[in-house]
Write a protein that binds this DNA or RNA. Sequence first.
DNA 1: GCATTGCAATCTGCATACAGTTTACGCGTT
DNA 2: AACGCGTAAACTGTATGCAGATTGCAATGC
Lengths: 225, 225
Amino acid sequence: MKQIRRRQVIRTGTTVEQMVRAIADMIVTGVMHPGERLDELSLAVRFDVSRTPVREALRELGAMGLVDREPNRSAVVANVTEAYLHSMFEAMSELEAICARLAAERMTIDERHALELEHRASARLVHANAQEDYAAHNTEFHTKLYRGAHNDHIYEMVTQTRARLAPFRRAQFRLPGRLAKSYDEHDVIVTSIMRGDSAAASQAAYSHVAIVSDASIVFASDKVG
Amino acid sequence: MKQIRRRQVIRTGTTVEQMVRAIADMIVTGVMHPGERLDELSLAVRFDVSRTPVREALRELGAMGLVDREPNRSAVVANVTEAYLHSMFEAMSELEAICARLAAERMTIDERHALELEHRASARLVHANAQEDYAAHNTEFHTKLYRGAHNDHIYEMVTQTRARLAPFRRAQFRLPGRLAKSYDEHDVIVTSIMRGDSAAASQAAYSHVAIVSDASIVFASDKVG
DNA sequence: GCATTGCAATCTGCATACAGTTTACGCGTT
DNA sequence: AACGCGTAAACTGTATGCAGATTGCAATGC
């Protein structure tokens, strides 16, 4: 995967915010790997700005947990310990369970229909084994679930946790048969939510994420230190 | 509560980190009120540094959710909407319930003893109606609970949420009889945890925080917009 | 009397410059 | 050949200066 070295100008809107998004995206999508250095001058040249906004962007990314910073040392793409990674996956399960429970209680009719529709549409992707497309669907499915909980702060927490886990979860759908299993698990969640069975939805969501975690940790274990 | 106008020099360790802590402290302890402006130059003069580290500190505080920032506008102490405040209190109940459940399952013998000890020691404060001291005990009690869950990421989330709620929760122990009720609620949590009854601990913790939320929202409702 | 426009003061956003720290490399010694 | 030391290069931390945006006020027109 070759990186684009050409100067990348992003002078629209607030410069720092754009840089935060751009760098976060590179980390989350795996263009940059955990442990990789983010030196200020290179980034400044690359985005065609001075070091000042770069530093502010790095500080914000640090606060988000996407990069690690130490005094007088370059920022590096966050390289979490295996223990912390495990705690994030567990937290993800708990948060997802909460969202599913609240969603079962609070989703509007329209939201329920939209969730079901999104889910049903993905069956086609499973049969085609379209891993990339299914991953996109998966993101949308879970986002709908988080939104459905109707709690902005929980949405913020779960979204942030998800972003931090993304680098360690990329390959999950490459496991043979994982797509079909994921679909089945989603099915239980959707069915429970449609019935308004919050306990079942919560339980199903917890297990679903726990399974994804196990699958992901296999791939992540060679990256963490 | 008069503010100290004298220059405040904090040249120990990493400057920006110190400033973040100092400003966060002023917000959390109520020295600065929601909506209050944080202009860069004043802060720079006050801490005897240039605007550059001030800006970085403000950006970090923004990422933490303690201050709101908009382009070309001063940072202001975060002034959340009533709806968002409610979502944070609800999230706090959920997180606390998780911590209590996990703590009931995972706390070591020593941690259980320490929690019980902290709790028992506070009985004296209730009888003396020592609100300030009880508030300190309360913080320590809940911190022990969060630690007891043995999950670093959840600890981070609950701590951050707690910090953001702090400005809106200051007066909770001024309600008549609240100290005694708080003690009783803690008692149920402690007893459940000592028994290893995770369901009861979780339930008790959820209710406890929900009650605190209701008490706090009364006081907060005249501050939010 | 009230609204509107223009100007000045204030403040933020960013670039540049300088100071202090860390890292890397080469030379000399053992 | 390996180790230690010293110097230079590279990089981060902070200050300062300038450009652009916003705000408040005052003067003017209706």
